[in-house]
Amino acid sequence: MSVGEVTRAMHGDHDAFAALIGSAANRLFALACLILRDSDRAEDATQEAFVRAWREMPRLRDVARFDAWLRRLVVNACYDEARRVHRRAEVSLVHLSDRGISDSSSAFAETDRVDRAFRRLPIDQRTVLVLQHHFALSHSEIADTLGIPIGTVKSRVRYGAAAMRASLDADDRVSTASSGRTA
């Protein structure tokens, strides 16, 4: 991100805005995909956030905080999207054809197991875990991104990790029991 591009975008320069968004799009789309676990919804949320960013650019108070501000817009758009689709059943679809042939069945099973546990988390816990583990943000950076106290970030991380652990343990117990029955 260049301060000059942000400043020009704030003054209505579309090319500068396109450059800013172009360089951030991949990682912010990944952020939305991880939070929502649905690429179509992630695309909608990311697009809404980018359009909102364009409209609200002149109101950005601190040019240096553009990245955190844009990330926050994407997270908020994900929250909006999640609320909108809350009534729909969440179906975990894994496209086997998308995966490499070298994937072993055990690796696939682990991915699926973590995916199921992650989907069970509330969206605010998913968000802090994604920002911490995939974006390597510190707790204070996450607090800054989300506009919440650092204590809230820590508790969401703690509760999210505990819920993941409980969910994975429960899955282990179920699979152990079922393999015991079939043995």
Partner: peptide, 27 residues
């Protein structure tokens, strides 16, 4: 897990549609 499942690239359509909308949107 996040490294594995996170997409590496945003769809081209996302940027095309975004810019089509921002061209018409007032700041």
């Amino acid at each position: 897990w996040m490294d594995e499942v996170a997409p590496e690239q945003a769809p081209t359509r996302l940027l095309e549609e975004t810019f089509a909308r921002t061209m018409d949107a007032r700041q």
